[in-house]
């Protein structure tokens, strides 16, 4: 059996994995979101309010929160159609900060004081959602839907000329990412049992991006490696605990310089497939 400390690590890792996945889906269309903590906040607050104040079962609350967050993803995704690259990244920073300050001012959910009263969820429940979500994304990766997503990333103009509605593809990616981040937020809320606006700041958004880039930004499975790295490394480097953030920062720079695609990449899997075929 896992100790409660270890169980906590696994839960944190799962939530981080979902966060990384939410960035990954959006990044796969070539759009970087630095505001996914905003979607996470929506999921955390809405699901907590639904379970605590409305008395709704958690699973239903998570589904509803994910759907609402997806609608916000649609709303923030529309500017994404006009904004490219860095401008989009900056807009998403703004979105994340707006959501955070909204909850800071929103007294019904406690404002700056935070919100509590949630019931603790068992670890298997968190793992269940994580495996389910990751599985969905990994299955989708093997379909032609995903080819369309990659086509938008590769060459948007050419994608349009082979008949793809790139607008729909980008919006779908944003909505999916928003929904996944909301699931992460809901699980986070029912794991830590106390949420406050400060939990969903810019650092949280960058943590997701960090996990995704380190693990491998060209496939969903990279988020497993990324989340594991971010959770386990501080455990292994206890002596340097004060320098944890700096080590991650240095790791990010190093990965970008040396192995931009992250620890795992699509070709690594491609090689494995080739190997099987040869034998």
């Amino acid at each position: 059996m896992l100790s409660s400390y270890q169980a906590g690590l696994v839960a944190d890792g799962s939530i981080l994995l979902l966060g990384a996945l939410s960035v990954y889906v959006i990044l796969s269309t070539g759009q970087l979101s630095l505001g996914n903590a905003g979607f996470m906040a929506i999921g955390a607050y809405l699901s907590s309010w639904l379970t605590v104040s409305v008395g709704m079962p958690l699973t239903l609350a998570i589904v509803i929160s994910a759907a609402v967050s997806a609608v916000f993803g649609l709303i923030i995704g529309f500017p994404a159609l006009r904004l490219k690259g860095l401008y989009l990244a900056m807009a998403t920073i703004g979105f994340g900060e707006i959501v955070r300050t909204f909850f800071l001012n929103f007294e019904p959910t406690g404002g700056a004081g935070g919100f509590s009263g949630m019931e603790h969820v068992p670890l298997w429940y968190i793992l269940g959602w994580t495996v389910f979500t990751l599985g969905c994304v990994m299955v989708t990766e093997r379909t032609r839907w995903w080819l369309e997503i990659r086509a938008v990333n590769d060459d948007e103009l050419a994608a349009g000329l082979v008949g793809m509605n790139t607008t729909v593809t980008k919006l779908m990616a944003f909505m999916t990412g928003a929904a996944i981040a909301a699931v992460a937020g809901a699980l986070f809320a029912h794991q830590t049992l106390y949420i406050e606006p400060a939990s969903f700041g810019f650092e949280r958004s960058t943590e997701f991006v960090l996990a995704m880039i380190l693990g491998g930004s060209s496939l969903a499975a990279g988020s497993i490696v990324g989340a594991a790295l971010l959770i386990l490394l501080p455990e292994l480097l206890r002596d340097f605990v004060d320098w944890r953030i700096a080590i991650f920062g240095a790791l990010l720079v190093a990965v970008l310089l040396v192995r931009r695609q992250g620890v795992l990449d699509r070709n690594l899997f491609g090689l494995a497939r080739l190997w099987r075929r040869v034998n």
């Binding site: 690259g85 004060d242 320098w243 700096a246 920062g249 720079v253 970008l256």
Partner: peptide, 27 residues
């Protein structure tokens, strides 16, 4: 080293440096 990559890559590396600098300051 990243100046020929797409614009997102150098931005991410500067994000790495912000983490280092902030940690440096807190310590």
């Amino acid at each position: 080293p990243l100046r020929n990559a797409n614009h997102i890559t150098p931005m991410l590396s500067t994000l790495g440096f912000s983490m280092i600098l902030q940690n440096l300051a807190t310590n």
